[in-house]
Design a protein around this nucleic acid. Sequence first.
DNA 1: GGCACGTCATAGAGTTTGCCTATGGCAACA
DNA 2: TGTTGCCATAGGCAAACTCTATGACGTGCC
Lengths: 316, 316
Amino acid sequence: MATVPPGDDRPTPAPRRLPDLHALELLVAVAQTGSLGRAAARLGISQPTASSRIRTLEKRLGLPLLQRATTGSQLTAAGVLVTDWANQVLEQADVLAEGIAALKSQLQGDLRIAASLTLAEHLLPGWLVAMRAHYPEVHVGLRVANSRLVVQALRQGEAELGFIEGPWTPADLQSLPVARDRLVVVTAPDHPWARRRRPVTGEELSATQLLLREAGSGTRETLERALRPWHGPSVPLLELGSTAPLRSAALGGAAPAVLSDLAVRDDLAAGRLVETSLAPGLDLSRTLRAVWPLEAELPAAAKHLLWIAQGGPAQH
Amino acid sequence: MATVPPGDDRPTPAPRRLPDLHALELLVAVAQTGSLGRAAARLGISQPTASSRIRTLEKRLGLPLLQRATTGSQLTAAGVLVTDWANQVLEQADVLAEGIAALKSQLQGDLRIAASLTLAEHLLPGWLVAMRAHYPEVHVGLRVANSRLVVQALRQGEAELGFIEGPWTPADLQSLPVARDRLVVVTAPDHPWARRRRPVTGEELSATQLLLREAGSGTRETLERALRPWHGPSVPLLELGSTAPLRSAALGGAAPAVLSDLAVRDDLAAGRLVETSLAPGLDLSRTLRAVWPLEAELPAAAKHLLWIAQGGPAQH
DNA sequence: GGCACGTCATAGAGTTTGCCTATGGCAACA
DNA sequence: TGTTGCCATAGGCAAACTCTATGACGTGCC
């Protein structure tokens, strides 16, 4: 079983001031309707409440957001920026809400999806949000399981659509690649590997004590397959049951960690973690696929979901 | 001046259920500390309050998030997913907070930045969040202005660092390209251009009535320069003063719109908008640059910011 | 085996926050 | 000049939230 760090009391992150999402939502509505009153109506609150909320928001931020007139209200320059940032927050909130709704429906949805953890965590909710624009009535049920169980769920008619990782595609299922996932070797910025220029070879990697997911996980399997020519990875320094503590350990800087690019993309962009380049012969990428029963005709919503998952109209 | 749609009462977006950010933050803290009590202490609230908050959250979501024991609390399977999604929301909230803080400081920061609208809107706050991890004490002041005014602010010592768009780099400033910005031609998915396969030529584009930003804006200038061989764009169907209503109009489907890829990236990924491919001769991209005075030595925080803006350790 | 420690849950009191209705002032337009 | 939207203010009510104090439960140590 995973060894979880007993109590992680590391550097207290500066206490963050959380925004009031209701106020942000209102601000966006005002921007769109051009009037506090109409925005209030859209959100189902009274006009004075809206007025007060925005005023409180302005006071808390210390910025004027609206230019009020008897003809309506318009965003100020600061308001434009804040509204834009607010929209990003609300969009993520939608992703969260969509994920939760799907998770809650689990087995009862109109469209039942079974997905591996990586996909369910990092990609699927976003796709569901996009799908909702076209199929607002479809209730999605999401079940999270490893690849083997996903396939089993499809065969037993417990799900209409599945998402799995890995090369493996059973013959009795249709499949469509939807994305790729790279495993990356990451270290804290102060780890020696962060400064090295020479790519890490398979031999080196297999000789290094790493931070890894537990045996049996898809991530671990991919690594083991890639390192098979060098007789697999050595005994891990630490073996963890899920991605989050693994990421924490890597941030701590003890050793290089191997995990999905999707899980640390933000950390890499922000420079909190550094990716170690790999020698050409070392391929840690894998394909993420949608799978569904051969004989089944996918419902329209599912087809649309696949279209989105593939990258929509323009494959980037 | 821009013509703003008088009152946009279009399709009422389904009322969204907004999450309680305080509860999400607490959940993340519990995941990290492994205990409700420690998490409460970290957030400066009492333990019963924490207990109650999480319980309320679980009730509202209809999902068990924590497995409580006398030794502490661990995330359930659902809790892992929710925590992950919650982290994304909180990260966007940080971006918002960082942007607001910088906007509020305006002229008083330790590090005063002047940036064009596109950069300030879509890129800079994220960079600032990343910077804060290493320089928590640095107060950033952000001033938003067009490229000419940014340069002027640097010359007059009113800012230490600037970010501008466009090819233009004055000789008395140092500059460093930090990103590229593509203008894209987008339509609603039901517009004829969404289905065409042949790329749009400069001739076609210049003959089409488009949705455009107002004359004088950086976006408009870039388009005009690119279409100069075809004598510039024709009279716009609608001319708008900022990006948001332009995007709305494009979603409405009246005509193709030309705007920054950064502003519609999400819409493209979600299939709400479709990008029209352009003929090879038609280049609507531009470089986004950091600029600062020749003689000046950049403060360490600014150097770090540039490092992040460039894509950090690994240029993706 | 018993005691101490840490965990989480419950109860009750006090305070704050937020909402709505009703009203007033102001500018634009007919 | 009257009418119609818009926003701001005031007052009263209700709900939500927080804290302190306490209880119950399992673990681990002596």
